[in-house]
Design a protein around this nucleic acid. Structure first.
Lengths: 238, 238
DNA sequence: TCGTAAACAGTTGTGTACAAATATATCCGT
DNA sequence: ACGGATATATTTGTACACAACTGTTTACGA
């Protein structure tokens, strides 16, 4: 699904870009690659990115790269400062509270607005998520946690057919998902992973019997509890 | 509030841009000006815009102008086609149904998520809206209707302090507000204006007594009825 | 007269040079 | 040695030239 799953890493990325047919395809690759790196904290908050370096890596000039950066800026993930650089935005637990409130409501809407009866493909997708959750629980890792969090979000998105809702939810998700990587303390990772995996498995079970509404309510509940735990981490961490 | 309210129209616009201190300010002017023109059907759906002509009008080169166009493209208001031009997107009543469903839910959230107790400024803003609604009802016009619709939306936005909710609502509003200008038949304009003005006045009354939740529910109800009428116009119009 | 292909005009996409702005380093005076 | 001003390096913002692409027109042949 994501671009990262390539063999030769950076080399493979440029190769992919070279063969990208049109401008839109090249943009999508650059955009999702950068967004993924920001979300996975490869580019950590406060880090300065160089347009020239990124353009060189992608094998293009600054012009098309800047388009991707501008959209990421509109998404709230980057911030450009003239004469300084392109800076990865900070994630502030307090400001993110508003986003979390909204995300909770939106997740409930997944069950209300055009819920989609899961077909065979969706079911197998969620079964894959269950398997990955079980694997992760056996061998917890921060990266695996973050990756499954992202992929499970996209799987959950397929439960509604309301396109605007999906777009809006996606934008808000990427504004918040980094917070876990910055706040969860290493000594509590296994516990946090276990909670998350039980959430995944619970929702997979709801999807299996076709109860999208229940899946949405479960997700909303877990989102709420997750935010509470994040606040605790932020308090004790400081 | 909007940029259009200048004396010398285009000349004034360039003058404003010349004096804009930084790049962000210049971007905001170009962005909101173009969005307003699209929303007011100065640029009608299907119309082709020329980057060069727009850049000349704003007194800048294509580079900074393109940033505004790219964001408007991400907003779903424009579409760029290589070798063809920059085209104003169509408004399709069926596809907009999903947006309307979402907008209804989001409007209700205004009353649930961080509703703001109206201060003196907000109250006077809504009183202005009431006066403009009364004026419009006395002398109905399509442009006046569209303008008040946009301005009243922004006024309503000030009733919540949840910034992400405001951003999301704004994006969705501008995806839908053009539909009225394209669908309302001229022979029913006075009637439609009357309905809209009564909505405005009703919500102003709710705000006056400080009942934001009621204002939000009223707005949601009117949004729902409005969408139903739009569907009727679309059916009888075709 | 019609169909087809080639030339043309016009548009967005990309590369590149330079301007504007900022952070850092350097130098000088006290 | 320290403060401050100045020079320098680095970065994003802008302008412009050209490449890539598309729709239209025109010319040519059947």
């Amino acid at each position: 699904m994501t671009v990262e799953e390539k063999d030769g890493a950076i080399v493979g990325l440029i190769a992919t870009l070279e063969h990208a047919s049109n401008a839109q395809a090249r943009f999508e690759i650059m955009y999702s690659t950068l967004r993924d790196r920001i979300s996975m904290l490869v580019y950590h908050p406060g880090m300065r990115l160089s347009e020239e370096a990124l353009a060189a890596e992608f094998g293009v000039s600054r012009s098309p790269l800047r388009k991707a950066l501008k959209i990421l800026e509109a998404d709230g993930l980057l911030r450009s400062a003239h004469g300084v650089g392109t800076i990865v935005t900070d994630v502030d637990i307090d400001k993110l509270g508003q986003v979390y409130q909204l995300r909770m409501e939106l997740n409930e809407l997944v069950g209300k607005l055009m819920p989609r009866t899961p077909d065979r493909d969706v079911q197998s997708l969620f079964e894959t998520m269950r398997r990955r959750a079980e694997d992760l629980q056996r061998e917890p890792s921060l990266d695996g946690f973050a990756r499954l969090n992202i992929d499970f979000f996209h799987a959950f998105q397929s439960l509604t057919e309301n396109e605007p809702l999906k777009e809006v939810s996606e934008k808000l998700f990427y504004q918040t998902c980094r917070i876990w990587l910055t706040l969860v303390p290493a000594d509590n990772l296994a516990n946090e992973v276990a909670v998350f995996c039980s959430e995944v498995i619970g929702i997979v079970n709801a999807v299996r019997i076709g109860d999208i509404k229940a899946a949405a309510l479960l997700r909303r509940a877990h989102l709420s509890m997750g935010y509470t735990r994040l606040q605790d981490y932020a308090r004790t961490g400081v």
